[in-house]
Simulated scan of single mutants.
Amino acid sequence: MDWRAIAMGVAFGIIWASAFASARVIVLNAPPLYALSIRFLVSGLIGVGLAFAMGQSWRLTRPQWIATLVFGISQNALYLGLNFVAMQTVEASLAAIVASTMPLLVAFASWAFFGERLRPLAVLGLFAGVAGVAVIMGARLQGDVDLFGLALCVIGVLSLAVATMSVRGASTGGNFLMIVGLQMLVGAAVLSVPAVAFETFTVTWNWPLVIAFLYTVIMPGLVATLIWFYLVDRIGATRAAVFHFLTPFFGVATAALLLGEELGSGDILGVLIITAGILAVQLSRQKPPAAPR
């Protein structure tokens, strides 16, 4: 894994993790599905507009269209929709930790369905990451946790794994920004149905809500998703998914800094274990030095 890919992965991890804190602010002041649907509509229109301005085309390949639909439904509608609903009762840090288990799901799916092989060190790194998440979860579950909200987060991370695998079809043929914009419009359309059916559009207008919404539209909505497409195109879905292990650290840190959520010793220990797992996976991808002649 080259340094540019590592820089892209870390940037994605920081932006992606920060979205949990901004989402928490949004759902405490607005109906979650309405807010998320509007966010995707705005982000999607901006993304498509910028793509057209850059000369990109909406004439995608068949695999790209399939990936766009699957990604829009699995990540935007299911994963983020379920997380937004869950974060009405679940802390942002806990939602971020659950999301970080996704790389193991992607690695298993890559092995089971695509025949992708992982070196022993990479496998150990993935399990170390999961162990670190388990340490954090163990400390968190000792308190009062809404199990229904936690279940929604678990279902959501399964959908995220499907979305990540679907990017395989979107990583060839270019037009990345167009794909990002279109898959957000797909998410907006799908989420608008349950929003109208089950929610009342009641909003508590304040500056934290406005700032959190604008940040979510631009950074996690457009910038992080675009980085993700380029990263998967560069190093593949399984390797890129490793950077989701950064989610616990940055998610918990952001929630503690901005929302005052508690950061305990179990969180710190778990983060250290996760970091070791990431390092192991990265080292497993390094080519061995050539043998001297």
Rank of each mutant, 00 (worst) to 15 (best):
R168K: 14
D144Q: 15
V85K: 06
C153F: 00
L231R: 01
R140F: 07
L41M: 12
L263S: 04
T254F: 12
D2I: 04
F84R: 07
G221N: 10
G49F: 14
M165R: 04
N175S: 12
F148C: 06
L269Q: 08
A21M: 05
I274R: 05
V25H: 06
V98S: 14
D2P: 03
L152I: 01
W228Q: 00
F12S: 05
Y215G: 02
R62T: 13
L158R: 07
D233F: 10
G49S: 13
D233W: 11
G264Y: 04
A151P: 03
L259I: 08
V157D: 00
V252G: 11
L182S: 02
F249P: 05
L191S: 00
G132P: 06
T61P: 03
Q56G: 13
R140Q: 13
H244N: 12
P289Q: 15
A240N: 02
D144W: 05
I73W: 01
S166E: 00
L28Q: 09
A99H: 08
L231S: 00
A7V: 12
A253Q: 03
G44C: 06
A95F: 08
A212G: 02
G174S: 05
S192W: 01
I46T: 03
A96G: 11
Q286M: 15
V281E: 01
L45C: 11
S265I: 08
P289N: 13
F250Y: 15
M178T: 09
L118N: 03
T275D: 02
L105G: 04
R285Q: 15
D146K: 12
L105Q: 09
P63M: 14
R117Q: 14
L279Q: 10
G169L: 02
E199D: 11
G264D: 10
V133D: 01
T61A: 15
A92H: 02
A112L: 11
T216E: 04
Q142C: 12
M219Q: 07
L246F: 01
N29H: 15
W205P: 00
F12W: 11
G236Q: 10
S166D: 03
Y215D: 07
A109Y: 00
A224R: 01
M102W: 02
A92C: 10
A77N: 06
F243G: 02
A241D: 03
